[in-house]
Amino acid sequence: MKTQRDTFWDTLFELAKKDRDIIVISADMGAPSLDKFRTELPHQFINTGIAEQNTILVGSGLAKEGKKVFVYAIASFLTLNCVEKIRVQNAMMNIPLNIVGVGAGFSYPDSGPTHHLLEDIAVMRSMPNIDTLSITDATMAQAVAENYGSYTNTKYIRLERQPLGEIYNETKDISFEDGMTEIFKGEDTLVIANGVMLLKAHKLIKEHKLKCGLLDIYQIPINSKKLVEVASQYKRIVTIEETFLPGGFGSAVLESLNDHELSIPVKRIGIPIEKGFCYEYGGRDEILKYYGITEESILADITKGL
């Protein structure tokens, strides 16, 4: 199974061969799929070294002058180290930059908390003119790359590090236009997630033949109109995220529902901030366990009252 990252860069490479304005800037982040840019399209590839703030600035300068720029690094560094640069260049001036970060949530489980990314959704969604695209699988990563020509604002493309599963690969004609996809229609309970947690929920629902709905909201800010349309068919909502709960994905869902005065109880599953950062090792599931999140606990939260 291909990673989201390789699929994304492979797709963009083919597009870049035909569009000289596509420029890829890596902050010393490598990938076999990026090597092709370096060797075959050297005039469209720049390595800025470990200097993320300069990466955002140079990328914004190029983008201001019409280049279609994709900056790339470990997501926690490219977002959190550069918030004010992104705020002025991309949120304030609306210079459209594609910020491609790898390492959503606990994608780097053994690297410790500096590499765990638990605040980016809250931070990035607090600024205007920036769309977060929290990628669920490689098929979606491919679509996001293919659509590059239509982007008029900054996209924060948030990638998983490991290949975790595919759900869109057998779906024909999926447009990814609404910012969300209703994967299962169900009764009573609607599960909402994206990325790794969407895949986890998908697996649980299939395995246990649950009759709940499943909604993949991969774009934030949320398309509230569409969310309300889907959510109003349910009695209860469970959101799942692999980020700190305050201001995160579940909060965004709550805000959308509340702003439309839709009263549906929402259970948020995510990283409780009271537990702080995690220095546990042994894989992603061990870390989640530290925070009290297991398949069993998620299942219990989904099926509560069913």
């Binding site: 720049i46 703030q53 300069n54 955002i56 600035l57 140079v58 990328g59 914004s60 300068g61 190029l62 983008a63 201001k64 002058e65 019409g66 280049k67 640069k85 260049q89």
Partner: peptide, 11 residues
């Protein structure tokens, strides 16, 4: 300076 460097690189 970084923004200007990007603009100059584009030139």
């Amino acid at each position: 300076l970084g923004l200007a460097a990007g603009i100059a690189l584009r030139a």
